[in-house]
Amino acid sequence: MTEETDLRAPPVPSPGGLAKATIFSVVVAAILLLTVVLPAEYGVDPLGVGGALGLSTLSQPLAPVPPPQGDTLAPVQDGAVALYPGEYRYDSREFVLGPYEYLEYKYQLVENAVMLFSWVASSEVMHDFHGDRDGAPANAAVSYDRQPRRQADGSFTAPFSGIHGWFWENPGGTTITVRVTTAGFYTGAHEFHYDGTRQSREVRGLGTIETRRD
């Protein structure tokens, strides 16, 4: 006694059935496109469903960091003097870049605020001194000085409000140390790592600087 096998071919859908299935798929895709994809990815919300579901916020450009809350140090120019509503800040950091690693370190400055800087690396690094405007997407950075360097000393006046600072990349297989010291009318600092992590850094007020009495 053997088991019978059904060798009949599976039923072939009729052209009408295929057309219905195709139309159904297209309709579902179009609904998803209008209610989910366009609001979430492009901020286009023709039916208002994206706003109701909170998807529209997903299409907002990613700002590099949130704009500063509270105090801002905006200069008021009076002839040769610029006065600020607070004291300048001071910061000094040392970073270790492993082989092929990069790091960005940037300060929050409002338009026309000034910063002095000196940085030095133990070996030449790929370098880009640049800024990101508040609220602009991360890929809209403005470069001020981009070339391999081992050190730089200078002053900087922010051309727009945002975060301004350095990209340092270790181009080789040995570890490089970068030491940066700044003083200026910034309100905070941000550190961005090659692996996608980021940290906010506090900057020091003048009260932390020891006063010499000779």
Binding site: V26, L33, L38, A40, S59, L62, G98, Y194, G196
Partner: peptide
């Protein structure tokens, strides 16, 4: 017309992957 709708939908759905991503380096 149907082919165009399907193509545009597929492109729109696929193109979404190119947005809202961040850069990473792996060494």
């Amino acid at each position: 017309m149907m082919m165009r709708v399907v193509a545009v939908s597929a492109l729109a759905l696929g193109a979404g992957h190119a947005f809202a991503h961040e850069d990473f380096r792996v060494i």
